[in-house]
Write a protein that binds this DNA or RNA. Structure first.
Ligand SMILES: [Zn+2]
Ligand SMILES: [Zn+2]
Ligand SMILES: [Zn+2]
Ligand SMILES: [Zn+2]
Lengths: 153, 153
DNA sequence: TAATTTATGATACTACATATCATTTTGAGA
DNA sequence: TCTCAAAATGATATGTAGTATCATAAATTA
């Protein structure tokens, strides 16, 4: 898990540069999310932190830490499943646009992609035709990843 | 509210033709949903039914009724907000494709539109590029309806 | 060091949802 | 019409996601 350490270190650096504090517990929660291929609920994170560090954070703390991590842009909330996933762009100089999350119904793996401009444009038009102005959308879509699909075949 | 009666009657007719039973309580819940411009939670529906008919259904019943109404295609569940909304196509011969729900952040009004083929195609391509095969998507998008937008201006 | 801000903990509670078992209602067949 | 089985609904308890509130601890700043 060298990899996840590195990503978390990027986050740490970002925090230092921006007057944010990536405390021990926040680091711990972020690390758990970075290492998980699938999204985790607040209470699942709580269990994970317990097995990792043998200390049970109260729910409130978990939610506050998740709020912080979201504010800082390290973590996204999947609204459909009430779960949290680390942003894929913590360690890169990626300008963060609107995200689409592809969730495999078999293995639950989450993949974060940017919504292409063309797709956004289409969706804006679709909405406008119905008398609506789109807000910055976040899409959460179920499907099946090619790994699982190939395994099935 | 003649209008909602008529829609519910369509549902009734559909049920008769298909060996389903639109019982009194199911009718009542469906009517409440048809008349509401915004989506309702199970517990909000419970309150509504109480004020309408002075009888408090247990949560389990509400959820079972909602399951039935969804099965029958009269009602959709908005997964992001845990709320329910009547299908816009109960009383028309519309072939039901994949739905997109536009939710106004001001007035909470829900508008159901079909996702245009082009948009679906784009999204399928976007997903495929990331090693994913899309499942039948349901999109729930926040925005602002033109009514609210004009009021603001 | 004292004062202030920021982070975390503890307790209790609300909202959404389901498991399980009991009772009522309905419709089909004798 | 009576009987029985299936379908629908009710009651009780419980699980899970999330928040309100007030208290304490840790880190900054003066
Ligand atoms: Zn991201
Ligand atoms: Zn998969
Ligand atoms: Zn519909
Ligand atoms: Zn509106």
């Amino acid at each position: 898990m060298r990899d996840s350490e590195q990503i978390v270190n990027h986050a740490q650096k970002f925090c230092l540069e921006n007057g944010l504090r990536l405390t021990k517990k926040r680091r711990q929660v972020l690390k758990a999310l970075v290492e998980s291929p699938f999204a985790l609920s607040a209470y699942e994170l709580r269990e994970l932190c317990k097995t990792e560090c043998d200390e049970m954070l109260p729910p409130m703390s978990i939610y506050r830490i998740l709020d912080f991590l979201q504010e800082a842009g390290f973590v996204h909330r999947l609204n459909v499943s009430n779960r949290y996933t680390a942003c894929s762009h913590i360690a890169c100089e990626h300008e963060h646009l609107f995200s689409q999350f592809l969730i495999c119904v078999k293995c639950k793996m989450v993949t974060e992609i940017d919504i292409p401009d063309l797709t956004i444009k289409n969706m804006k038009n679709d909405a406008a035709s119905a008398g609506f102005e789109l807000e910055s959308p976040q899409l959460e879509i179920n499907g099946i990843c090619f790994t699982c699909k190939n395994r099935a075949a």
